[in-house]
Design a protein around this nucleic acid. Sequence first.
DNA 1: ATTCTATGCATTATCGATAATGCTTGCTAC
DNA 2: GTAGCAAGCATTATCGATAATGCATAGAAT
Lengths: 227, 227
Amino acid sequence: MRSARLPRVTLAEQVRDFLVLEIAQGRIPPGTPLRELEIAEQLGTSQTPVREAFRALAALGLLESRIHVGTRVREVAEQDLVDAVPVRSALEGVAGRLAAPRMKGEGQELRAAFDAMLHVAASGDRLAYADASTQFHRSIVQAARNESLLRAWNALGIEVMTIMTMASTDVPLEVAAESHREVLEALESGDPEQAEQLLAHHVAEYLPGRLQVERHADDGRTEPATA
Amino acid sequence: MRSARLPRVTLAEQVRDFLVLEIAQGRIPPGTPLRELEIAEQLGTSQTPVREAFRALAALGLLESRIHVGTRVREVAEQDLVDAVPVRSALEGVAGRLAAPRMKGEGQELRAAFDAMLHVAASGDRLAYADASTQFHRSIVQAARNESLLRAWNALGIEVMTIMTMASTDVPLEVAAESHREVLEALESGDPEQAEQLLAHHVAEYLPGRLQVERHADDGRTEPATA
DNA sequence: ATTCTATGCATTATCGATAATGCTTGCTAC
DNA sequence: GTAGCAAGCATTATCGATAATGCATAGAAT
């Protein structure tokens, strides 16, 4: 969002990002209890920034805290990937609808994000690809110029989910990246209907194989997912 | 959510709720700068819980913070009411779709929430009505049993919005309450399609008169709103 | 054996104080 | 008069220490 702009300074944010990566990449497995003071010591900070990071991650559903008892990494992170599908689909559909008219003609930022995604896909770095993909989708949501929408979307924690998904699927990056092209074009053409449709569908496109199976029991209208 | 169950203990939560009411009811007008230490002194706590409350409210979009500079009440709370309409509509539509099959037959909790709403509407207490209405809608979102959905919905800060809406509209409470009946019935009947439709539409039903005007410039598919 | 109760312990929640930051104002140089 | 710089100030960000809480365990009573 402001990634390169401001140096992302606070310790709390650094701690948060550290934990996100540790958890998303499986170095801290689900169920692990996290103690504020322990993490603080480990990172050389005081309890305060760690506590703040815990709160932020709990809001994303990555941790769960019980007051006066403790915090641990949530077990169900995988179910979340599945749950998120219809929600993301709905939200990004709205985003497409609202963003399309504003994009007509000037999708510079979005196209830049798309190009970055293609570029990074060629490099084979799945983590970097996750970043690029997240940035692409966030650009769309931001283009809708709707604070509520952005907030709801952020609450889903797409960054983390995308990282986790990329880590557990083996879809070739080029294919994944290429699948964004029609979305980009629909937005650039400025057609709200088509943008909504394509985005809602696209978001439901890839899901790690293992998860695809469980999916069908559940929703019934949207299809598979990643992005 | 757990309102009566656990006593909602932490100071941070109390501070948060205090601020929500002050802001929602206009006793702290938009634009007001809030200083952590000042609020702390005013409430007889230390800076820490206040800081935590600030963060939570910033996440809801009620405050905006700039690092090392300060925090103030967001100006645009009113625009948010408008922005939230298509987002809420989409989210609650999904909620209805997912919740309906689970509710078939046993909508006890939801019906209880509905009855509470009717009851409180008769009393004329608009603040209490806002609570009841929020509880009704939250029940539906919870019934969908989808963590991501609940998180996204919570991120919208419906409680606050409903309080603010009720404060600035003059729709008779009985009418507002009654309008939930068909939603309830659709859910009890267990039909996902109909529940989705009705909810998405219902959510877009009431908006304070002053705001209705601005609305039409903006979205184009969903209609007016409160709930 | 089972339930109740008291006590200790692990952990968070809160506190008061200090460090760090960014804004602003006033000065200086041109 | 204006641009650049420096010092002071308001405010947050962080720290280290203490208070409060809930859980678990062990013992007593039945």
